[in-house]
């Protein structure tokens, strides 16, 4: 980019614009992160007899060792991954399917469907989980009521296995619409003459979707995939809201719930800090690896 300078921009000027963002992120992102690391190296010891008084002392890496050897943390990662393996492909798959269907010429009720599928995005995770909680719970579940009326076996949404699907369903319900709109918008950005050329060459709509739309959509798919993955790491509201309703969800069901439990319920801030640093490091590492893999692949796929 060539820029003719009639009077040079002083070097401080760009910082006028990026300054507020940088200052605020130092305060709300970097400082808390560093503070967490400091906390994670400390612990509570009680002094004085009887109930005693709590005192903060330096404990080195003891909290990290406790976290690393806590089977519940790894089990939580396992459950998080299970939900991720269910939800991420399904969210992307449905979002892509709906986006491609919306883009088919002469589809009916497209506007209605597009808005309807997007609407759950407006429902907060806690509220969605409350609502689905009612829909799942025996005794109040409309699905079980319908099954009973039809003489079908009543599904149990809260067994140890089915609860993965019950939670995934809430995540999928809330996530498909947003990703669909992103993909659909990307589709609309593809020049229409590409399709016309393909039709002249005798391609049908399926072949157009498979050989023109899909490859061109790849960068957008990768991006939505990344968003879904980050969403998965943050999984918290849904299992937390369902926890009091059933036996199937523990208070440490996913790693973030474990952090919350340690910090607030078990009153051990320092253990919570160590666990959260561990999670942050692991997930950042995983995200960076994923990001590089998908970036290289999508760039390789680009013509």
């Amino acid at each position: 980019m060539r820029r003719k300078r009639y009077h040079p921009v002083p070097p401080i000027t760009p910082w006028l614009f990026v300054g507020p963002a940088v200052a605020l992120s130092l305060f709300t992102i970097l400082a808390p992160f560093v503070y967490s690391i400091m906390l994670s190296l400390r612990g509570i010891r009680v002094s004085g007899g009887g109930l005693g008084r709590r005192e903060e002392v330096f404990v080195g890496l003891a909290n990290y060792w406790t976290a690393l050897t806590n089977a519940e943390l790894w089990a939580g990662f396992g459950r998080m991954l299970t939900v991720g393996i269910i939800t991420v492909p399904l969210i992307l798959g449905f979002a892509l399917l709906f986006a491609l269907m919306l883009d088919v010429p002469r589809v009916r009720f497209a506007r209605f469907s597009r808005i309807a599928i997007f609407v759950p995005y407006a429902v907060p995770g806690v509220i969605a989980s409350l609502m689905w909680g009612f829909i799942y719970l025996p005794g109040v579940s409309p699905i079980r009521e319908i099954a009973a009326n039809l003489g079908l076996p009543q599904p149990d949404f809260f067994t140890r296995d089915s609860v993965y699907w019950s939670i995934s369903n809430i995540v999928i319900w809330g996530g498909v619409g947003f990703n669909m709109v992103i993909l659909f918008t990307a589709l609309r950005g593809i020049p229409a003459d590409l399709y016309d050329a393909a039709r002249i060459d005798g391609c049908n709509e399926w072949q157009i979707a498979r050989h023109i739309k899909l490859p061109l959509l790849l960068p957008a798919i990768v991006l939505t995939g990344l968003f879904s993955l980050i969403g998965m790491i943050q999984l918290f509201s849904e299992p937390t809201t369902l926890e009091p309703l059933s036996n199937a969800v523990s208070t440490t069901w996913v790693p973030m719930m474990l952090v919350y439990r340690d910090t607030f319920v078990a009153q051990s801030l320092h253990a919570g800090a160590a666990t959260s640093i561990l999670i942050a490091v692991l997930t950042t590492f995983a995200s960076v690896v994923l990001f590089w893999i998908t970036r290289r692949r999508s760039q390789g796929g680009r013509t």
Binding site: F98, V107, S113, I117, P120, M131, F134, V176, E205
Partner: peptide, 26 residues
Amino acid sequence: VRGGSAWIPTVILILGALYCLLPLYW
């Protein structure tokens, strides 16, 4: 574009819309 309505895509979209709206209707 030539041809009548695309029914299969329409049905798929309507099913998606129902999945999203039924819990809210409840």
